[in-house]
């Protein structure tokens, strides 16, 4: 991604002022014009898609006037207009900053994608093998991915969590799990 120096230096989002020696490295996310343009283009594409889908809504009783298509159509038109403004701003503006967002860490992607995959597998396993065993394995696996290596924690914590939830929902609230 292109990160023009000019943008970075005018950014209002960085907390560490360039003058003083930083006590810790600056982890805040860097502003990027390319990113802003990409956001606007994606928003535009999605809005157009929404408009097409809105016009395609099948009506049981015939439409006309303020029918079920009307509100989503209006919203997708608003979306298109706002995306165009955003695109214009991305080209013209120099002051885009990213608030207090932090830059992504190298291991971050792995951590997030693995926990998302685990969650998906968990949801599938739950529907197949019931609540108890998948929950214990899932919690344990998450702990391992997040960096816990003590076997005691890896076994006892998941069991405790599974029991607490089972007790609260299944026994107290009578929500079958």
């Amino acid at each position: 991604m292109i990160e023009p120096q000019k943008l970075a230096s005018t950014s209002g989002g960085t907390d560490v002022s360039p003058g003083e020696p930083a006590a810790e490295p600056d982890y805040s996310a860097k502003p990027s014009r390319t990113l802003e343009i990409a956001i606007a283009v994606v928003a535009l594409v999605l809005s157009v898609a929404a408009l097409v889908l809105s016009r395609d809504i099948v009506l049981r009783m015939g439409g006309g006037g303020i029918d079920p298509k009307w509100w989503p159509t209006m919203l997708s038109c608003c979306g298109i207009a706002l995306s165009l403004v955003l695109l214009l701003q991305a080209f013209l503006s120099t002051s885009s900053h990213r608030g207090d967002l932090l830059a992504i860490e190298r291991r971050g992607w792995t951590r997030m994608i693995v926990s998302l995959t685990l969650s998906a597998v968990y949801v599938f396993a739950w529907s197949r093998f019931g609540y108890v065993v998948p929950t214990i394995i899932f919690t344990g696996a998450l702990l391992w991915v997040f960096g816990l290596r003590s076997w005691k924690g890896l076994v006892i914590f998941p069991v405790a969590v599974a029991i607490f939830i089972y007790g609260l929902f299944h026994l107290l609230l009578r929500v079958p799990l």
């Binding site: 926990s115 929950t135 998450l142 702990l143 997040f146 960096g147 816990l148 924690g153 969590v161 939830i165």
Partner: peptide
């Protein structure tokens, strides 16, 4: 952190 994250997700 690992306990907190896992608990939140579950």
């Amino acid at each position: 952190k690992h306990y907190i994250w896992a608990t939140i997700l579950v």
